[in-house]
Design a protein around this nucleic acid. Sequence first.
DNA 1: TTGCATTGCTAAGTATTGCAAGCAAAGATA
DNA 2: TATCTTTGCTTGCAATACTTAGCAATGCAA
Lengths: 111, 111
Amino acid sequence: MENYGEYFRALRESKQLTLREVEKATDVSNAYLSQLESGKIKQPSPLTLHKLAEFYGVAYELLMEKVGYPTPKKAERVRHSNSVAYRIGEISEDEEVELLNYLKFIRSRKK
Amino acid sequence: MENYGEYFRALRESKQLTLREVEKATDVSNAYLSQLESGKIKQPSPLTLHKLAEFYGVAYELLMEKVGYPTPKKAERVRHSNSVAYRIGEISEDEEVELLNYLKFIRSRKK
DNA sequence: TTGCATTGCTAAGTATTGCAAGCAAAGATA
DNA sequence: TATCTTTGCTTGCAATACTTAGCAATGCAA
């Protein structure tokens, strides 16, 4: 993915967190998070990605892949990539239904 | 592992290769390989490790571990892929960001 | 021996990560 | 309104990956 900054921003905002809240929880500075979300960072280190993955509840491997690092065993990973939790973090069942409806809307609109 | 420089050197010498031969095959400069093998490099990038892993015929993940990068815990991976309740199906990366933004909206509304 | 190639290595330079400090705008509170 | 706080962001800096250029030692052929 080229513009994964947007993705990190969406991840944080979907949880209604400020940069400083994420900083507190992950020990990644708000300054750096800001740069990361605005696309100024090419490849954050694996350690940084790991902290963010843990905190946001998404798979570390996914983030590694998103920023363009080589990942082991692509075939195996494909199985996991369909899970929404894998991609956007934990959601409640109610939220899942809402997302499904919204997804339907998105797709009907784009067609 | 602390002294993985020795490990890389052993890997190369066991195959009777010169620094420049490895350079040719992996596009990692002989200068850097030398520094790497003498313990002057703290954490070579994942890309570099990947090239070396491929060429030396060892597991990429092993090298990642050796230099101290976090590695995906298998339990984690399983947890993500098993959260059956959240299985929605394949979505594109664009849709993913849209869903995250919508999730943000949902959550702000409920608050 | 003399000349040339090969070897590992160092020095110096570029690019990038990640941080601390601090700024401007907006929000809250008096 | 005036003051304090919160928010995202920018700037300047240190650390470090990685390269190019080149050096000293060794080997090897004439």
